[in-house]
Design a protein around this nucleic acid. Structure first.
Lengths: 240, 240
DNA sequence: TGTACATCAGTGAACGCGCGTTCACTGATGTAC
DNA sequence: TGTACATCAGTGAACGCGCGTTCACTGATGTAC
């Protein structure tokens, strides 16, 4: 049931994977815009029309690549999270595991990082199913935070935001309700905001490096990255 | 001298601007990848070949668009910075001006934001001259920080990074030397790092909103944005 | 001020290209009896 | 186990398309005398 039964089905799965592998290699070299069914078919020594047995259009193939990128990134994050949870250390050390895995993944597959966090192609809609791996990624990132909260070892936010009118607080809580509910139940709104802000910073710091903005600016990106994720751990209230 | 003398020269400048305007409009709708000289020529009711009197190739036009985007963003940031410096208020209030201007610009011209901070087109090199507006942008952002430093009203970083081995500190200082020298002379390395981290967060929070990642996640992006820049002001040591 | 020549913007036809997608087909694999 | 039919992967030719870029040209604008 789970593995296909007939030879035909097995070959079909194999060829599908081959197509995606070649497509991903092309993506890495030429970028998403230049991805072409014909050139993929050429590499596979197939007729271009044969690809239509596997993907109904170029966009369908691109969607598969996008979804695959999300899943691969989420897998990497979860693996790192699982490994660090198995050998417990200081919370701020464990916090670092997922960011490091995300950065390593992004440096390894910059075009796919761009597919997820870069500018979207206008008129093209990312597949809905990306919500699932996206949530897995976020959950892996905040896992140490949730555990410390359960322990009671989480500190209150060190920096108090100056924007503290009650209306602002209410609006913020309402704004972040989906995040709080899905990932960080029972945490104070300010902490939820700081956790989301940490995610934001992480995406920013990785994107800026991967997209080439650190050239002549940040000479050793890894050092700045470590400093940044250390700061994030502290800001969010993880004990060192 | 500064304004062109002959009629021909004036018309040339006008047409050049028209081409760029139409190109920018196409960019906003179809994205950079789909930008085509022929469709621009069609809109201008010119022969496609006529564009070659103004730009030597498609890439040259794209470079002009990219440079223009950087300059427009830097102009916006500087205008906001100048306005807030003219009517002094609390430092953390003044700090907010440039981030708000950047966000407004990005929401207004999402594709151009993507040109600057999105995934780069492989094989295509952004023009060197972008360094100038990029520096103007960064300088506008940190202006309140520099002023507070001069005042002596800057606080030490509230959150102490746990990564504090002397070797790490040295490597960090070396890493950030270009940033420190160009923008934040005489500030402690930890503060330089936090300032660059603020820039990073800002790019992240704007990109995630503009690129559509807040859908069903952050219900009121402006509220979260305000919270974020408030946190950044505090983290960097600006008094409220 | 008027003339002769140089400069330059814009035209229109043509080049070669690679693309996504369709369609009628062939031949191999799978299924039902 | 063997046969008859259905399913499906892959082929190859063709479709129409829009693209960037080149080139010889025309006619208007600018310049030097």
């Amino acid at each position: 049931m789970s593995t296909p039964r007939t030879v035909r089905d097995r070959i079909r799965d194999e060829v599908t994977r081959e197509i995606i592998d070649v497509a991903r290699a092309h993506l890495a070299i030429e970028g998403a815009a230049a991805l072409s069914l014909r050139s993929i078919a050429r590499d596979l020594e197939m007729a271009p029309s044969a690809l239509y047995r596997y993907f109904s259009s170029r966009d369908a193939l691109l969607s598969a690549l996008i979804l695959g990128a999300y899943e691969s990134l989420a897998d990497g994050a979860e693996a790192a999270s699982g490994a660090t949870a198995a050998t417990p250390g200081r919370p701020s050390e464990r916090w670092a595991a997922v960011p490091r895995a995300m950065r390593a993944w992004a440096l390894d597959r910059p075009q796919e990082w761009g597919l997820i966090f870069g500018s979207p192609v206008p008129g093209y809609q990312a597949p809905e199913e990306t919500v699932v791996p996206y949530t897995r990624l976020a959950a892996a990132l905040v896992a140490p935070l949730v555990e410390c909260q359960a322990d009671g070892t989480l500190r209150p936010p060190a920096v108090q935001s100056p924007e503290s009118s009650p209306t602002h607080r209410d609006a913020l809580a309402a704004s972040l309700q989906p995040v709080a509910e899905a990932l960080l139940p029972d945490l104070p709104t300010a902490t939820v905001a700081l956790a989301l802000q940490s995610f934001t910073t992480l995406i920013g710091v990785i994107s800026l490096e991967v997209f080439g903005h650190w050239r002549n600016t940040v000479l050793q990106p890894d050092v700045f990255f470590e400093e940044t994720i250390g700061n994030l751990a502290a800001s969010v209230g993880l004990c060192p």
